[in-house]
Design a binder for these strands. Structure first.
Lengths: 239, 239
DNA sequence: TCTGTTTACTTGTATATATAAGTTGATTTG
DNA sequence: CAAATCAACTTATATATACAAGTAAACAGA
């Protein structure tokens, strides 16, 4: 990362506490009080609270007024189940993928500003055809921002025809995905896309652009997906 | 500032700002500075920041150091992070409607079970063409469940070419709409729909089915809308 | 004119402090 | 002994203050 630049204290504290929680340092399931953390790290209470707040948002800890701060047993399960990738959406057993590309490319213009990267930066591009029951239903092009965590580059080495991208980001790299913005529109299949999906050029499809964000608001993923219009519907729950 | 309310100030501020953003109060897409908000609401900067932080997490606003706070609205897209009707989504000044029907009909089969009504019950059906800047962009067929509140029948008497349906439901009848489930898919325009939208039959469009629920879980509205595929995008925020 | 520099304004980080409101256990009181 | 109270803890809310770091426009000097 950008270790040479001054990293905010609350962020370093957040990282360190997260590390400790994941390594089982607080075995009794209880974190020190705010006061104790202030003393241990020689920071003010607000700095401690800001770090703890992030852990709450990620679902790692839970705080109770008058009692203390506790590690959640099912760490963020609820958060994780809501925001899902294709594999989780459809069900692991029926879905297959064919990897068309898994390589470094220059950041595309639509992602440049959300990724907050300079022109010409390299990002991981993963292009896959998605199958359900051996029928091709979508072409998906995902761009992943390695500035969020360098281990994202490890994806290049993986066999992504079997792996779930979101599982790797969450479980292996430990990135907590908390929000996604999607834009859904109608589009016609290009000849290339039509060929990949075994359809005719010009057929209607659902085009979904998705920006996925981590708990600290960094955009880690930009996906452009083309779904067969005759096979797919999107369900949205608003409140 | 000392308030005897049980609801925290930062939360009320967050709610109010959210409301304002939704209503288009900050039309230029820019929020006041922290200082200005401090002065307007007579609170400290931390309270303002805490309110704004929530809006950032929800993806409603975006903040830039040295520049200011900006509303994350992409122009030409529906702004649907809140539960809104068409009028609120697009902005009251630009939208017009033509009423094609406003009458009692038998409950359609897709709505019968969610409305929890016996076969052949009568419901209000409101069919409208929606215009933005005098261009027809959608055909909308709304079914309203009078079992939720009999005053829904009053809609039959209203001139719905000017009124916002959601305003009537919320403000006049006092129904609180809290959740909506939507299904978005691709569809081709029927000859009738094509004629209404001034397009050719068979053109691609976005078909949205929407079920809107009240706070006590009753389904009050079922809407089938056909949006021009070339004019509309749906924006969805997931978390 | 163009190029740095200053200056004012923005958000970001951080400290210190005060008060409120739940929780818990010890202490007082009937 | 039992119940009420109190004291000491916890997190939650809120204020005031300070400085850092980006941004942009005004300004000065070559």
């Amino acid at each position: 990362m950008k270790e040479s630049y001054p990293i905010p204290m609350y962020y370093r504290l957040y990282k360190q506490l997260k590390e400790r929680i994941m390594q089982g340092y607080y075995r009794d399931g209880k974190l020190p009080t705010e006061k104790e953390l202030c003393d241990e790290f020689s920071v003010s209470r607000m700095t401690v609270r800001k770090a703890l707040e992030r852990l709450v948002i990620e679902g790692l800890i839970e705080r109770k007024k008058g009692k203390g701060t506790f590690i959640r047993k099912v760490q963020g399960e609820e958060h994780l189940t809501k925001l899902t990738g294709f594999t989780e959406e459809v069900g692991e057993n029926k879905v297959k993928s064919k990897v068309l590309a898994n390589k470094l490319v220059r950041v595309p213009p639509e992602a440049k500003s959300v990724f907050n990267l300079p022109d010409g930066s390299l990002v991981v591009m993963l292009k896959r055809i998605r199958y359900i029951d051996d029928t091709p239903v979508a072409v998906e092009e995902a761009y992943l921002n390695p500035a969020v965590d360098v281990r994202i580059l490890n994806i290049l080495e993986k066999d992504m025809s079997k792996e779930s991208l979101y599982r790797i980001l969450r479980k292996e790299i430990g990135i907590s995905l908390v929000r996604a913005d999607e834009i859904i529109e109608v589009a016609e299949l290009s000849s290339q896309q039509a060929k990949l999906l075994n359809l005719k050029k010009g057929k209607c499809a659902l085009l979904r652009k998705r920006y996925t964000y981590t708990s600290d608001g960094q955009c880690v993923e930009y996906v452009v997906s083309m779904y067969r219009g005759d096979k797919f519907k999107f369900r949205v729950s608003r409140s």
